[in-house]
Structures are given as C-alpha cells and as structure tokens.
C-alpha cells in the first residue's frame, strides 16, 4: 500500500460530499490511497471498493475453538480423568456442560476476533500513526492521494479534488 512518500490531501467538510467525491475522483482516473473520517461513513467502503470484512469468519473460527476446548476439557476431566459417581448419574452430563461451553465460545470469539482486528489493522499501543490531517479525527473528511501511484501531476489532481468538492488541498509527506 505504501508506495511513495508524497501525498495530496483533500479536505472535505461533509461526508456526503466525500462519498460523491470518491466516485468522481475514481472516474477521472486518479487512484485514491485511502479516506479518513471521524466516524464510520456508511457506503464509503463500497465506494472505495472494499469487500465486507472477513473478521466475522475469524470470530466464528475462534468461537468454534472455544466450543471444542470447553467440551474436551470437561468431558476429559469429568468423564475420563476422574469420573465421579453422583447418585448413579452419567459421568458425562452434557446439559450441565452447556453453560460453560457457551461462555468459552463467546470468550474466545470476542478475544480472538478483536485480537485479529488489532493485528490486521495494525492497531498497537506503541509507534506513531500516519495522520494526513489531524482534523480527520475531529470534524473533517480526508482523502489522501499517493502521487507516486498516479500518472497525473500534482496540479491536475489538485484541480480534480477541488472540483469534487474539497475545500482545501494540501501536500503531505512523512519523515
């Protein structure tokens, strides 16, 4: 994703303007690096061409792991390792195992999916984030264009951004 170090940053005041701008900018042949918004803008992922996240699948697999671990643990401990005769009732009373199986399913699903989310989105407590404009976590909607990934020159992209409704277009490079 990170090709160059010279970016053009279009600042928009409204999420609906940004949403339309993504389509317009793409149509004029400019590749968008990424958009940055202060809150989730519905439809932006479609406009950017992102498919729906696979994280729920990861969550399901982690949840299944929890189910299997819980059942294996309880059946192993109470059914085989130390069977207890409680009034002649079965050593492996499956209904009694359901609550803990459910809890461990939920626990592993939640922890696993959130952990995966942190890893794939590179969310971690150390380091510094690449902020194209600090206002993008406050009230502005930001579109970043990687100049190295585009054939057009900065001046023409700037005018495309301005025409799509950007109130400001700034240059940004990271150290």
């Amino acid at each position: 994703m990170e090709k160059g170090n010279n970016f053009l940053v279009g600042i928009y005041d409204d999420e609906d303007v940004l949403l339309e701008a993504v389509g317009k900018v793409k149509k004029s042949g400019v590749k968008i690096h990424e958009c940055y918004t202060p809150f989730p803008v519905h439809g932006l992922d479609d406009a950017m061409g992102y498919h729906y996240s696979n994280l729920p699948i990861a969550g399901f697999l982690f949840g299944m792991t929890g189910t299997i671990c819980a059942l294996t643990m309880m059946i192993g401990m109470m059914g085989f390792d130390w069977p207890m005769d409680i009034g002649g009732r079965p050593y492996i009373p499956l209904p009694d195992f359901i609550p803990i199986t459910f809890e461990l399913t939920v626990l592993l699903c939640a922890l696993g999916m959130t952990g995966t989310f942190f890893v794939v989105s590179d969310l971690k407590p150390w380091g510094t984030p690449r902020m194209f404009d600090p206002r993008s976590v406050d009230h502005k909607f930001v579109m970043a264009i990687d100049l190295a990934a585009n054939k057009q020159d900065a001046a023409s992209i700037t005018s495309i951004l301005k025409n799509s409704g950007a109130t400001e277009v700034n240059k940004k490079s990271f150290e």
């Binding site: 990424e34 958009c35 940055y36 918004t37 202060p38 809150f39 989730p40 803008v41 932006l44 992922d45 950017m48 992102y50 729906y52 996240s53 994280l55 989310f117 942190f118 794939v120 989105s121 590179d122 969310l123 971690k124 407590p125 380091g127 510094t128 984030p129 690449r130 902020m131 993008s136 976590v137």
Partner: peptide, 14 residues
C-alpha cells in the same frame, strides 16, 4: 488510542 487513524478500511472492520 492504539495508532488509530480513522481510515475507511479500519472503520469498515471496526
């Protein structure tokens, strides 16, 4: 803030 940058991709996953 775990390096949150508010990118569209991250919001979609969020």
């Amino acid at each position: 803030s775990f390096n949150w940058d508010g990118s569209a991709k991250t919001w979609s996953r969020y």
